[in-house]
Design a protein around this nucleic acid. Structure first.
Lengths: 140, 140
DNA sequence: GCGATATTGCTCTTCCGAATAGCAAAATTT
DNA sequence: AAATTTTGCTATTCGGAAGAGCAATATCGC
């Protein structure tokens, strides 16, 4: 990621945010590739483990993924045997982790906690505690 | 952008970074839409104004856009009459702003400086000075 | 209870950004 | 002069995200 001194864009918060997110996601994707999971797959696994029996729409709301786009995502996870769809009533279904899903989740956790540590480590100590709060302030 | 208290992901720097960047870009896109420009279009205009006579590949390197993807982008800008391609030698061409491009750039500047101000304003004052430095640390 | 309304899960389609492979012409290196 | 690199491009693919629309079902107001 070159940062030429005469780059007039590098100082702009919006531009820096975009580039940083881009670089971060490229690296996380690579680290998750051995598990055969995309970033959104991993997010879903983590979420359904933390809050059991969520419906597809609830997951979508929490992760800001549209209903329509949840379908292929969950199909993929179900096809890989990581989740199951269990009927709640005749309309809704709960998404639950299978045993294989739980096992995969453990691998995901290992990779992501390592990843998040590495990420934070690259931020100079004096800026570090401000990083997540600043980002969260942008999400209200 | 909901941030439920029992969201196990919201605290993760990587996840927060992704979501913040997503939200930011969605909003910037909207603000640029009246100018009929995408975010990358605007970046290119700003860059070619600051460093004149750059070639397509140089722009790509600076903005981290691949050669192949620069082509339709520049075609679009050229089609809109905002830039011209001027031959340097028989292989390379300089990208230069047209008069219309310069005028459009002024509008871009108005929108982006306003946007960047608004963005920073949403970050609490004690975190604000740490924001861009932290992001830049992730880009090395 | 019933009718209007909202929600759920889905299909199909489109768009954008990004990536890859390949290519011809021209420049640069040695 | 030959080998290598660079430039600009075509063509294709992929992933994430968005939109419109739909049938079945659940929920709310009365």
């Amino acid at each position: 990621m070159p940062q030429p001194p005469d780059d007039p864009l590098g100082q702009l918060p919006g531009y820096a945010l975009r580039r940083a997110a881009q670089a971060m996601m490229a690296e996380l994707s690579q680290r998750l590739a051995p598990l055969d999971l995309r970033i959104s797959d991993a997010s879903v696994l983590m979420l359904v483990a933390a809050r059991r029996d969520m419906t597809s729409s609830e997951i979508g709301k929490a992760l800001d993924i549209q209903r329509a786009n949840m379908v292929p995502l969950l199909n993929r996870l179900e096809g890989a045997g990581l989740i199951r769809r269990e009927p709640i009533d005749r309309k809704s279904q709960a998404i639950v982790l299978s045993d294989a899903g739980l096992a995969r989740l453990e691998q995901v956790r290992a990779i992501t906690t390592r990843f998040e540590d590495d990420l934070l480590a690259r931020i100079p100590a004096q800026h570090r505690p401000h990083f997540v709060p600043a980002l969260q302030a942008l999400l209200d």
